[in-house]
């Protein structure tokens, strides 16, 4: 297998993903937690299409049957300070 990057946050190659699936992390949720794909600063926005396609090809599950792991907030990383202004917070939202 050639060396193709599929996740730029965690430096995962296609071989890393295939090896993880073969080791038994053969569900998208466990694959995510084992490899760290979907869990870097992009939170899946760059890697999801690559990982899901590769997963579907490796396991034979049709892409349309797959449930992509939950995209958690925030959409983009934001500073903790912006969420907690020192004065006049926004508690009641």
């Amino acid at each position: 297998m050639s060396k193709k990057m599929v996740c730029f946050c965690q430096d995962l190659t296609d071989a890393d993903i295939v090896r993880a699936i073969k080791e038994g992390y053969d569900h998208l949720e466990t694959l995510k937690r084992f490899t760290g794909a979907f869990m870097g600063p992009c939170q899946g926005k760059m890697c999801a299409a690559n990982v899901v396609k590769l997963y579907a090809e490796t396991t034979g599950h049709p892409v349309e049957d797959l449930r992509i792991p939950t995209m958690r907030p925030p959409v983009e990383p934001i500073s903790l300070g912006s969420l907690a202004p020192e004065k006049g917070g926004d508690d009641d939202a």
Binding site: P41, Q43, P77, S79, L80, G81
Partner: peptide, 16 residues
């Protein structure tokens, strides 16, 4: 967390 670690106020929240 910002009260305990003032340096964290600039840190970026990645996931909740």
């Amino acid at each position: 967390f910002g009260s305990l670690f003032p340096g964290l106020r600039g840190a970026k929240l990645m996931r909740q």
